[in-house]
Amino acid sequence: MVDGEWAEQRRRAIQAHTAAAEAKRAAEVAEARELMRWFVDAAAARGIAAEELTAMPFGGGGGRLRTGLRGWYLRADRSVAVGTDAEFYSLTAPGGLWARLTGVTVTPSRPRLIVGEGGRDGESMPLAELLRRRLGDDGVGWDG
């Protein structure tokens, strides 16, 4: 095989692999969004009130930052939440005095089916399990 042919074959293989990985990621995001829409409806039906969501400053530090968002925290450390808009939020933001005074803008993250995947041991958990725990049951009613 000529070097140019090999390089072209390799380039096509990389493109195919990249396209397959992106398709898989898009399907994962779609499934996660469906789960979160189900959760918001289930929480409302069960009378589980949304609350004001706050963010932690990057690097920790004291205090929480107002976000202007409402929703449900999914972890005890209040690091991730589902908003009333059925979006997934990672609740960290730049801190500082101005942020404490005015609040911060937190944009939705692309949701994953495994929250915390790639993080430290013991920090990853399936999104469906976090949502079921937040509802306080085994997720009866979820058919996904």
Rank of each mutant, 00 (worst) to 15 (best):
V2R: 09
D3S: 13
E5N: 03
W6I: 15
E8R: 12
Q9L: 15
R10L: 12
R11D: 14
R11Y: 10
R12C: 06
R12H: 07
H17D: 05
A21R: 15
E22P: 04
A27D: 15
E28Q: 10
E31H: 09
R33P: 00
R33A: 09
W38R: 08
V40H: 02
D41S: 12
A45K: 13
R46Y: 08
R46Q: 14
G47P: 07
G47M: 12
A49E: 15
E52M: 05
L53V: 09
M56K: 12
F58K: 09
G59Y: 11
G61Y: 10
G61M: 08
G62I: 06
R64W: 10
R66Y: 04
L69H: 00
Y73C: 01
Y73R: 01
R75V: 13
D77A: 04
V82W: 02
V82D: 03
V82N: 00
T84A: 12
E87D: 13
F88P: 02
Y89S: 07
S90L: 07
L91R: 02
T92D: 07
P94F: 05
G95L: 06
G96D: 10
L97G: 06
A99Y: 00
A99M: 07
R100W: 04
L101Q: 09
V104S: 03
V104Y: 02
T105Q: 13
V106A: 00
P111L: 07
P111A: 13
R112D: 06
R112M: 09
I114R: 06
G116Q: 08
E117C: 02
E117W: 10
R120G: 13
D121R: 15
G122T: 04
E123D: 11
E129K: 10
R132C: 11
L135T: 01
G136P: 05
D137V: 01
D138Y: 11
D138S: 14
G141V: 00
W142D: 09
W142L: 14
G144Q: 12
